[in-house]
Design a protein around this nucleic acid. Structure first.
Lengths: 128, 128, 128, 128
DNA sequence: GTGGTCTAGACCACA
DNA sequence: GTGGTCTAGACCACA
């Protein structure tokens, strides 16, 4: 369900949180679905339970999951979360465009890039 | 000439390198211009000289500046540097678009964002 | 009669005990009334019987109910229980006021809050 | 500067975070003041550095401090944080009052309690 | 079984 | 020196 890259510079706990975030945002796992238990995921990824715990804590603080002691972690309702995520995207997008403009990228180039990339039909989950 | 944000999550050395990179790409400082000396910059920013040194080393490895022993650091010829920069932008742009698509941003929304932002006339350097 | 919130941070057994405590203090269930059996309540709330048992044990230790082997649990006489409750309230109230003062809440603000809230006429049980 | 209670049910990291939160809200330590280093505080409290780290991470996520790699943790600007804190107080206060009303506390009793407690002149930091 | 907290100790990036 | 990440392993509360 989830893979991590030990060579990557991004911390393991962040990779794990990011992967689940995407799965939740894309609706692959839905509200009130049970997350894998900390221990089981630790075993299947050969990662220390503490690291999984940290990833889950991060997800909880971001509102993606909620935890119930003795029962496990569960996917939270994603209504508001999705809006937040879109706002963040818009922000990043704006900053990148301004940077691009600064190094000489024209509006036309940007639009053709958008067109090129978002016209592809594949809608698979990006595992990067 | 350069300011840093101590509260930011990006390391000081990276902030400094990024700022100079932009100044060079935009032509504010030109090939063979002398960079401020490590010590003087360290003093004027009240930053550890090691940190400035690391920023300069980074810039040198990226081909933006070259160092001459005993004389200082100088801006390099930016022949294909600009091309590299554009490639990097294109890459970042693609990744961001794919992420956006994953969370449900449509092509039309992206294009209208591009249109909105790049139609403004101000061309000041963004200090974010 | 009773609902629980799985998303809440407070343990299920505590939520259950708190709910019954309120029902008893408000006189909704009266001395010597029979409490729902552990098993039936477990079924109707879809909760592990151990959890109900723990809630009942808590209530018994606080003096709100008493158990008779083979017959079930019953509401206890709430003679001075009410006094205890008031003392606890006074305590919590004091601590909160001191905290408020520490972060800059004035006496006048508190009084106007009290006035505002306790002037409303509705006296329904708050299910939060 | 800070003490912890090993017997308490509230986790050490939370006790530490709470203590600093109060010191910051009361202005005892001010924006851009340096926090004790993770390691030094760990030694002086005889607590594992990881636990201090967790307390600091909590404080950072709540906006009370910011961390600079290689330099340390510093107190953040508390403008907005104070407002949040007041909102939280108002909320807690309302809930407590409603609970009080449910168990038979009158408005007059509440007001006299407020009067009694907030009229004392002592303004020392509460170390509870 | 399941999450949460904590210690001990290591290693890395940054200043 | 200073914060951040991670492992190994223990113990507790809760269901």
């Amino acid at each position: 369900m989830i893979t991590v890259d030990y060579m990557s510079k991004t911390p393991l706990y962040e990779q794990i949180a990011d992967k689940f975030q995407l799965l939740i945002l894309k609706g692959v796992i839905k509200p009130d679905d049970k997350m894998p238990s900390v221990r089981s995921l630790a075993v299947s990824l050969s990662i220390n339970p503490n690291t999984i715990q940290k990833a889950y804590t991060t997800l909880e603080q971001s509102g993606y999951i909620y935890s119930v002691k003795g029962r496990g972690n569960f996917v939270a309702k994603t209504k508001d979360v999705k809006e937040q995520e879109k706002d963040k995207f818009t922000n990043d997008f704006k900053q990148l465009l301004i940077y691009g403009r600064d190094i000489g990228i024209t509006k036309e180039e940007c639009i053709s890039l958008v067109d090129e990339i978002l016209t592809k039909e594949d809608l698979q989950i990006d595992q990067t």
